[in-house]
Design a binder for these strands. Structure first.
Lengths: 200, 200
DNA sequence: ATACTATGAACGAACGATCGTTCACTCTAG
DNA sequence: CTAGAGTGAACGATCGTTCGTTCATAGTAT
């Protein structure tokens, strides 16, 4: 076979296998309840070999948190469209609510937040994703203020953060209620609530 | 000394000492990072004696979650005043925001939520507190709709849950931002946001 | 082509620490 | 005398990490 890029690609594949396995474990049992052996077993590799790819357990979590950044890109793209701020906001809310309503995303976020409270390194990674979304949303709100389709927010940044809070909380609320019937009603109510809070 | 109520009272004191110690540990390092030995040491008792008062580590957390219910009582009282719903809502938001902005409350809630995701028993206790607050708030919103100071919410229950979400999220946001200057601005923006979302 | 060496992925036993829990025991108040 | 609060050693399990080893492959000198 050919050059070393074949090898490094294979290595990346292995790393991904480990990350996927770890993610599954963390979602099922939580970060602290998951042992390194659990991850290795689910990834189909040996315990020792895991340490050839990651310096330790926390590094695997950090990799997961870092990969999460890629997931936010589509939403950043969505928010970049300032031509019709009100429509863009509605579409963003709808899209992010769908994303946030997926149990796996809720559980991962919960795990990451819980770890962030006691672990600055994870907190930094987590805050990066958060800030980029809040910034993009804030800019959309400002654009909407400028062309008059939103009311004049005294603090667009805080407003953006509160809208993001509502979106993130939605998923957790649906998860802990575990009644399936509520999802669409909750999203409707959310659109309505944000609509009234932002209109002139 | 006198009757057995003296003894049971002393026992309760001990239990509280343990609960307090456990709470401190959980807040500092998280539930899973705290060992039973840490709790016993901080409570000033022996390891074995802790098991004379609690059947195990999880029971201590459950006790903390249960005690949390007492903290919500003042807010339930506050929300029971339906004479001027708009004023009551503002006062509730202000009071709960202050409560929620205290780091210890944020961290405890975070810990409890994180545990609830993987532990139905804790989830049940947590959901009890949550539901009582949401119900009281929902009733206030309905009263406000009836006498015309709020708009007609299509789903008052969802609205109440979203307002609670905003209040709970506020504390976490302030904690993770760890900039001290933002608190009053965040609360102002929150009042403004909720005000616009609920007015006619 | 053939032998030798170097590389590093892969492995699982083993390490020391710590986990939650149990237990046999002492001490003390009623 | 007795009930039970209080003690800390000890248990078996599991934790994250390290270690010595094997082995397939790549490169190189012959």
């Amino acid at each position: 076979m050919n050059a070393p890029e074949d090898k490094t690609a294979a290595l990346q594949k292995r790393k991904m296998r480990i990350v996927d396995a770890a993610l599954t474990c963390f979602l099922e049992n939580g970060y602290h309840q998951t042992g390194v052996r659990d991850i290795a077993r689910k990834a189909g590799i040996s315990l020792g070999n895991l340490y050839n790819h990651f310096p330790g357990k926390e590094a695997v979590l950090a990799e997961i948190a870092a990969l999460d950044r890629q997931e936010t890109q589509p939403f950043l793209d969505l928010l970049a469209d300032h031509s019709q701020p009100e429509k863009t906001l509605k579409r963003f809310v709808s899209a992010y609510a769908d994303y946030s309503a997926q149990p796996e995303n809720v559980v991962l976020t919960t795990e990451l937040v819980g770890e962030s409270v006691h672990n600055p390194e994870i907190a930094a990674l987590f805050s990066e994703n958060w800030t980029s979304l809040v910034d993009a949303l804030k800019n959309l709100l400002k654009a909407g203020m400028a062309d008059g389709c939103f009311r004049a927010f005294s603090d667009p940044d805080e407003t953006a953060e509160m809208i993001m809070d509502l979106l993130e909380s939605l998923g957790l609320r649906l998860l802990l209620a575990d009644g399936e019937k509520k999802k669409s009603a909750a999203i409707d109510a959310l659109q309505d609530f944000i609509g009234h809070a932002t209109r002139k």
